[in-house]
């Protein structure tokens, strides 16, 4: 509702009763210009209230908190005094403000705590149920393996400490370690479960890079011994392109390429078959190779790698 601008705008509208009182007073006055304004009270309250004397201002401040709702509605029509009142109340300390401060302090503190508490465990709460289940299973497997290892190591430690058959145990440990290292280094034959991967290459487009990727994927999948066309693949093995085909550790090999891998057959096959892995790369139209994977419970790798004595590195 548009309001006439008054040159002098006192604090009004905070108590409609005051306005009412002012209006009554005006009604008692002899007729004049202001009477018209008083009659036109619905749209023109401001001039009517403008004549309120200063003693009634005091009354106005007392009645702030108990103004009835009808007057509140009238009060809302008037421009600006709310802002002015807020500003004045803000700089003047009062009990209500102290109460408000206490409550706001508590709320702000609780909000900050809550936000921080949420932020700290965000990582897991954002994950979906299957992910969480997978993670839990992974952790359970890990902890089971670690617990087994602890038990085994403790047994070893106890046997070594009791001293009765210390030498025998120590020898056995050393022998086992040598065997493990021999398999790892490819200086001993190996047998165990695994997979045989045959890559037929009718178009002759299988590259050394593809075979290297295949070997790396098998290693990622937990391969313990690898044989490629009769050549034992070890840590220092290399693949290259020779004059007429692929060369492994200096030995030329020909298609079909046969990878014999010892490890967990299930995991190895999955490692070869995942999307974008060995099988999908080799069978892509650009390469056109045929991959067959056979799982076996018992494979034997007889090929050996001849280690070269290190030229520079010495045990530290």
């Amino acid at each position: 509702m548009p309001e006439p601008e008054t040159p002098r705008r006192p604090r009004l509208g905070r108590s409609g009763r005051l306005v009412g009182a002012a209006r009554r007073r005006q009604a008692r006055r002899p007729s004049g210009v202001e009477d018209e304004q008083a009659l036109d009270s619905t749209t023109n309250e401001a001039p009517a209230a403008a004549v309120v004397s200063s003693d009634e201002h005091a009354l106005l401040t007392d009645e702030v908190s108990s103004a009835p709702s009808r007057d509140v509605r009238q009060a809302q029509h008037r421009p600006l005094p709310t802002w002015r009142r807020m500003l004045r109340d803000l700089v003047r300390p009062s009990r209500a403000q102290a109460v408000m401060a206490l409550i706001l302090c508590l709320c702000a503190m609780a909000t900050v705590w809550q936000v921080r508490a949420r932020a700290s465990d965000q990582a897991y709460s954002q994950m979906r149920r299957p992910e969480l289940v997978a993670m839990l299973e992974q952790l359970n497997t890990n902890s089971g393996q670690l617990r087994d290892e602890i038990r085994r190591l403790e047994t070893t430690k106890r046997e070594l400490q009791t001293g009765a058959n210390t030498t025998r145990v120590a020898q056995e440990q050393a022998r086992k370690r040598v065997q493990e290292l021999q398999i790892l280094a490819g200086t001993a034959p190996a047998q165990g479960p695994g997979v045989t991967i045959t890559i037929a290459d009718p178009q002759g487009k299988v590259s050394p890079e593809l075979l290297l990727d295949a070997i790396e994927e098998m290693r990622d999948a937990g391969a313990e011994a690898i044989d490629l066309n009769g050549v034992r693949v070890v840590a220092s093995s290399w693949l290259g392109r020779g004059t007429d085909g692929i060369v492994v550790d200096g030995v030329p090999i020909e298609a079909p390429y046969v990878l014999v891998v010892i490890g967990d057959p299930q995991t190895l096959e999955e490692g070869a078959r995942f999307r974008g892995g060995l099988v999908s790369q080799a069978q892509a139209p650009q390469v056109g190779a045929q991959v067959t994977i056979r799982q076996s419970d018992e494979l034997t790798i007889t090929s050996l790698h001849t280690p070269k004595a290190p030229q520079f590195a010495r045990p530290a």
């Binding site: 803000l90 403000q97 408000m100 401060a101 409550i103 706001l104 302090c105 702000a108």
Partner: peptide, 8 residues
């Protein structure tokens, strides 16, 4: 004023 201080 006190209220704002309380919040902060």
């Amino acid at each position: 004023m006190i209220a704002i201080f309380g919040l902060l």
